[in-house]
Amino acid sequence: MPLLEMKGVTQRFGGLQAVSDFNISLEERKLIALIGPNGAGKTTVFNLISGFYQPTEGQIIFDGQPTAGLRPHQVTARGIARTFQNIRLWHEMSVLDNIRIAQHHRLGYTIWDAFLRTGRFTKSEGNIDAIAWEMLEAMDLKDAAHELPRNLPYGLQRRVEIARAMSIRPKLLLLDEPAAGLNSADVDGLIKLIRWIHDEFDIAIWMIEHQMKVVMSLCEWIKVIDFGSTIAEGTPEEIQSNPVVIKAYLGDDTI
């Protein structure tokens, strides 16, 4: 059974068809990429999977169950975590709190437990703290735990955002342009980090990325979309030499 299946997914915004007839069957533990020119509809695909939009047509099935009708926090609780194209950390609270808050799906206590500081509350908060510190340790972010994200260098903010997503312990991690805005040293670090996460946590990773260095060195399968439609898919070697892809990226100069 595939981990994620999208069947004939179409998303319209008014007259604009941002995603048309999108199909994919993603197996567990795969590492794949979605590429395409700006405005092709890549982020929209991620927004559909996260439950941020309900598809105009088609079906999304995660872990054997359709996600239709679920709110984003429910989709996340099922095991899909993501990062954003523009970093979306909570900038007025510490890195540690950023990770703690992403544990809302496993709180397991009510507001009354919080008021009364019941055993259930203490246990859950202890558990959340342990998970948060473990993730900061694993991602080499311990020193930044009490910093505000906005005071960190951009590369580190990216890393915090990935740590926050991973602390949810997802089965599928969606990365929306993780290398955007990074310098080349940071990009090398990112490649290592993603490979390490993939091996260590044994999860499926799906990334949107423009930097071919990242895509080519990490991904086993690539899907290319343009104007919302799939124009090619295959291994990195196949995609690199595909004339349709090259044309989409370089533009049609027959005009």
Partner: peptide, 24 residues
Amino acid sequence: STYGKGISAVCQDEVAAEIMSVDT
């Protein structure tokens, strides 16, 4: 509490809160 800090998360970025599993 982590529960209550969800309120500040909604304040600072509601979309991120919802997608990071906070029932906004």
